[in-house]
Design a protein around this nucleic acid. Structure first.
Lengths: 362, 362
DNA sequence: GTTGGCACTCTTTGCTTTCGAGTGCTAATA
DNA sequence: TATTAGCACTCGAAAGCAAAGAGTGCCAAC
């Protein structure tokens, strides 16, 4: 059955009122909202139909209506205003973003904090490198017992470590090792660095002191760490201010799940195109723990093939419109600052596409 | 009035039972615990006296007794067993500690996570450097538009950054800048790097492209960051499993306070001697938000004049004994691995001194 | 000094009642 | 035919109340 214009208006009113108040909304309240010029009775009839169509639900016979996940979905896809931030908001956000952003890697935590402060929901941020390898090795001789390893990764981040040795080395050895590592390990991804390769390098180095082992260990550690999607979560406490989490057990369950850092995002989220906002409503989430929460994610280009995601978690009764706008703006700002390639002009809002998750398997 | 042996036993029983059950404990329960061979009636008399002495309180006339902060204080100072970890626990902990620990700086967050998992309370870890300065600069020429800054700090941590320039530089310039920076900025603390010094270096560099500015900015940023006490908080969600935080508002208030990262520790905590455990019970905390929680902190030596603290936050009804033992062990382990100087033999428990905070100002 | 006994207090729990918001239905109306 | 007013009905939330139970304080006896 097609859904009439008036039904859409009513559904919108229910969703927005429910988002605002967290209370089931009744026919009278909708009539008063305006934008509809008909009586509560008429609205009641429409509401009854919306219930039978599956967009709304009643907690119990004599209560107002509450949107179902399906209702939210329709709202998100078709009904809601695509909010844009006001000039001041945009400016403020840009300023804060600039403050945080020197090097993504250090500030990915800062980004998630920012997202959380901005939206008043717990937020997470993560990056996933495409394929990381070492681009270049520099070994700096400091003194007889000390040298510094600097590994420049393909993502153009330099990682360094100061190594103190129990034995002494000379400048020549350090330099020779540097050349050797540049020859053997540059461009290699983590899985390409086989024990065999390590072993042969070790022999070639003619290094009895085990210094090569230290370097390869550091290399592997850095590659591993860089390849590992770095996840940050902040603002967990925001959950507690939501009435749906007044039940401490429920709150605890979700918070534990979140802080385990695990599979918060549905796999398909990672596949999202840049600057596109995705919304996962209640049961659309794969993780059992998220079945009655919603997740909104935006994806951004962190440069050099690295993909980043920022998202927030909240009750299904979330302010989708506002949150999506903010995340979209944030993601666009990040892409602009971090991403290579064509930067959209500063200050311009990027388009806000909201994609529905792929549910073909259901 | 002096406190009799029997009163001590009874107080101990009340505290431990209350820690276990979170319910006010009655005379009958104490009698059944054993270790006292007298009737509930006798115990009631003693309890009444303990109440009038201020060690215990009654939530209401017909309820059992609950320890007051003063009661906990006595318990912590004199009565509780100084637990030591069992062999297996110690071994497990050591293993996990080794896993986490390569470089304190990266893993301070890991340490707090470990403390939280270990104790089932929210945990925080922080380090405070004594006075950080740059020990050495290395500028590595990569290509005409790129070079790497490596700053080795006095704390023996190397920090690096890959710099891309809009203009091109030659190897000679990079090298010259390196020498210049080594001459001008090594050994300088953040506050010693005045605009004047920066300016004169800039002039000496004969650098029209503003490369010195990039380097000084990075230097200042790193010094600032290193001097800033790095705080990490984890396991906030553990709070919610404590019955005293079943009230979502209360939980929210404390969690917000904690996640702001602020002044969790009383100032005196920072002054604690290494490997010493301090306990701050309820109102002993200076922060208003912590007035009915307890904080346990252990201090460790992170090497090179850096002091670290690990601590947990929980309700006053905390398992002081177990937590103190674990933190003490953890701190000792960290000191051993990170601290310079005399390392106590591996696997040995360090002594567990529990210091009372200095309350002379009250 | 210790103990058993007992009346008393105060919370907790469960039940019943009341109240009200909101519904669904029907009949009247534009 | 679509809308509206009216009204009886439902069901949860809040309030009130009684019974139960845990624990105390005190007294008198040991």
């Amino acid at each position: 059955m097609a859904i009439s214009e008036r039904k859409k208006k009513i559904l919108t009113a229910v969703v927005e009122e429910y988002i605002r108040t967290a209370e089931p909304v009744g026919s009278k309240a909708i009539a008063q909202i305006g934008s509809l010029k008909c009586s509560p009775a008429t609205i009641r009839n429409e509401l009854a139909e919306l219930v039978s169509m599956g967009y709304l639900a009643q907690p119990h016979t004599s209560a107002g209506r509450v949107p179902t996940p399906m209702g939210y979905r329709l709202y998100v896809n078709e009904l809601m205003d695509r909010q844009r931030l006001s000039e001041e908001e945009a400016e403020d956000l840009n300023r804060r973003l600039n403050q945080r952003l020197q090097d993504l890697d250090d500030s990915i935590g800062g980004v998630s904090r920012l997202a959380s402060q901005l939206t008043d929901y717990p937020a997470l941020a993560l990056t996933r490198q495409a394929a990381v390898s070492a681009q270049r090795f520099d070994l700096i001789y400091v003194d007889a017992n000390t040298f510094i390893i600097v590994i420049t990764l393909s993502s153009n981040v330099a990682r360094s470590k100061l190594v103190r040795l129990p034995i002494s080395v000379d400048q020549e050895l350090v330099q020779r090792l540097g050349t050797l590592f540049n020859a053997s390990f540059t461009g290699k991804r983590e899985e390409e660095i086989t024990p065999l390769l390590i072993h042969s390098t070790e022999r070639a180095a003619d290094d009895t002191a085990g210094i090569t082992a230290v370097i390869t260990a550091f290399l592997l550690e850095q590659l591993h760490e860089a390849a590992e999607p770095a996840t940050f979560l902040s603002g967990e406490n925001m959950l507690l201010s939501q009435p749906e989490f007044r039940d401490p057990d429920k709150a605890h369950r979700l918070m534990s799940y979140l802080s385990e850092g695990g599979h918060i995002l549905p796999p398909s989220a990672a596949a999202a195109g840049t600057d596109e906002v995705r919304v996962f409503i209640g049961p659309e989430n794969v993780a059992e723990e998220l079945k009655d929460s919603s997740v909104i994610v935006a994806s951004f280009d962190a440069g050099d093939g690295t993909r980043g995601l920022i998202g927030v978690v909240g009750p299904t009764r979330m302010d989708y419109s506002a949150v999506a706008a903010k995340l979209s703006f944030l993601a666009a700002g990040l892409s602009r600052r971090l991403g290579g390639g064509e930067a959209p002009p500063e200050g311009m809002h990027n388009k806000l596409i909201i994609k529905e998750p792929d549910n073909s398997h259901e």
